[in-house]
Structures are given as structure tokens and as C-alpha cells.
């Protein structure tokens, strides 16, 4: 295998990543300073910034220069509710609506066949007047009739379920995909139509695989990242 020198743009990109990673107290050097320090062209610095901007790792501002961005990092370690995941942020939960609907066919697989009506709860999570997530939760109406009456403004669902029904989720699966905000979503999240969103669907169960709830969340793509921490990944055989 041959040896290759990193391109000037890659050097600049990794140097900036290094500065962000060590969380240096000092401000990030200007584009001109970076070019001088690394003995590379301004063009290479701009190319590096394009790559970092495409990941929303930095933003480049007229007066302040290159500023690192911090996304909200969601730890999907285990069965945690969104409220637990966002615990460090001052988040307001706004309850948009609760309605009873006929079970849509795509949820037939999840809910028991005996359930025909679902309670649909729509909420938005807001941080300092900026909407972050829009979520739609479905419960079986037979199972949790009281939910219909509750105002979930600033009231975490899972805390309520634990208190009222002594229920905690035991198993879940999630799927993550991406969609572009439609008109309704862009209004609720106060973003431009077609902004990329994470679309996170979760299916949660309690005791002996009884369906608890299913949620669809829409999160503004540029504001969030996820991380997963799996231990002993090669021990999967033992579980079988």
C-alpha cells in the first residue's frame, strides 16, 4: 500500500476538528490565520469550511468568524423518554391537541386487534421560543381511557403513566428515516418548507410484550444528532 500526503483541505478540516474537539478557550483562528499557520491556500481553507458546514459543525459569520455549532446530542442508550433525553435543556412542552380516532390500518400490526379506537396526542417541544420537535403519540383508548382528559402541557407522558398506571416500558424498537417538512410540519416547527427532518418512529411495549404506545417524532435535522453506545457487541450469540 502506498503512502499519500493529506490534501491541504483535509489538513485544514482535521485541524479545525481538532480545535473543536479540545474545546480550546481561544477563539478559532480566522480563515487568513489558518492559511498562514498551516501554509496552505485560502482556497483550501474555504474548501475545508464547506465540508464542516455541510455537517453543521461550524458556522461562518461575518464579524465573529468561525464558530463551532453545538447540536443537541440525544443519547439512545436505552428505553429513555424524550423528556429524560433532553433533561439538561429548559424545554417547554406545548400540548396541541388530543383526539380519538379510528385505528388506521398501518397500526394494525402494533395494537391488538380488539382495539378499534386510538387516542392521538400531538405535542411540540420548545426551547427558548424555538420549536425543536413535533410528536404524535397513539394509545389504545380501551387501555388508557383517562388519557383523553389530560392536559399534557409541560407534563411528561411517561411520568404520568408511571404514576397513574404503574406502567414502565420494557422493550422498544425505533426506526429513523428522513423527510422534508411539509406545510403543516414547517408551520408547527417554524421552519422553511422542505427543511430536512428526522422522522423517528418508536414502538414501545410493557409487561409481556403488551403494546403501550407508538410515537412519531419530527426533529429539525440541523439541530440534533444521535448517539448509541453498545457494549460487548460480539456477545450477541450468548443471547440466543
Amino acid at each position: 500500500m502506498e503512502f499519500k500526503e493529506r490534501s491541504a483541505a483535509v489538513k485544514a478540516q482535521e485541524y479545525l476538528q481538532y480545535l473543536i474537539q479540545i474545546k480550546s478557550e481561544q477563539a478559532i483562528p480566522s480563515q487568513r490565520e489558518l492559511a498562514e499557520q498551516l501554509h496552505i491556500s485560502r482556497n483550501a481553507v474555504m474548501h475545508a469550511l464547506e465540508r464542516l458546514k455541510s455537517e453543521k459543525l461550524v458556522s461562518v459569520k461575518e464579524r465573529t468568524g468561525i464558530v463551532p455549532n453545538s447540536k443537541i446530542d440525544i443519547n439512545m442508550l436505552n428505553m429513555q423518554s424524550m423528556t429524560a433525553e433532553l433533561k439538561d435543556k429548559s424545554i417547554d412542552i406545548k400540548h396541541l391537541s388530543t383526539e380519538v380516532i379510528t385505528k388506521p390500518s398501518e397500526l394494525n400490526d402494533f395494537f391488538n386487534s380488539s382495539s378499534t379506537k386510538l387516542i392521538k396526542i400531538r405535542r411540540v417541544r420548545i426551547n427558548q421560543n424555538i420549536p425543536l420537535t413535533y410528536e404524535v403519540v397513539y394509545f389504545d383508548q380501551n387501555q388508557f381511557p383517562q388519557l383523553e382528559e389530560i392536559d399534557f402541557t409541560n407534563k411528561p407522558l411517561y411520568q404520568f403513566l408511571e404514576k397513574q398506571y404503574k406502567i414502565e416500558p420494557t422493550y422498544g424498537r425505533e426506526s429513523i428515516s428522513c423527510c422534508l417538512a411539509d406545510e403543516k410540519q414547517s408551520k408547527i416547527l417554524k421552519i422553511a418548507p422542505n427543511t430536512p427532518l428526522y422522522r423517528v418512529q418508536s414502538f414501545n411495549y410493557y409487561n409481556d410484550d403488551i403494546p403501550l404506545e407508538t410515537t412519531t417524532q419530527y426533529l429539525v435535522g440541523s439541530q440534533f444528532k444521535y448517539h448509541f453506545n453498545a457494549k460487548n457487541i460480539y456477545d450477541y450469540r450468548e443471547e440466543q
Binding site: 464547506e50 465540508r51 455541510s54 455537517e55 453543521k56 447540536k71 429513523i176 428522513c178 430536512p196 428526522y198 435535522g221 440541523s222 440534533f224 444528532k225 444521535y226 448517539h227 448509541f228 453506545n229 453498545a230 457494549k231 460487548n232 457487541i233 460480539y234
Partner: peptide, 18 residues
């Protein structure tokens, strides 16, 4: 040999190269 896996997952934009 590795035993653990830390994953970071995020939405980014396609650069020209990508």
C-alpha cells in the same frame, strides 16, 4: 480486539464530492 461500539448518527448535506 474491540468490544464496544460508539455510534454517532446525524443528518448532514451532500457535498459535491459525496
Amino acid at each position: 480486539k474491540p468490544v464496544d461500539l460508539f455510534q454517532n448518527f446525524q443528518l448532514v448535506e451532500a457535498t459535491e464530492e459525496v
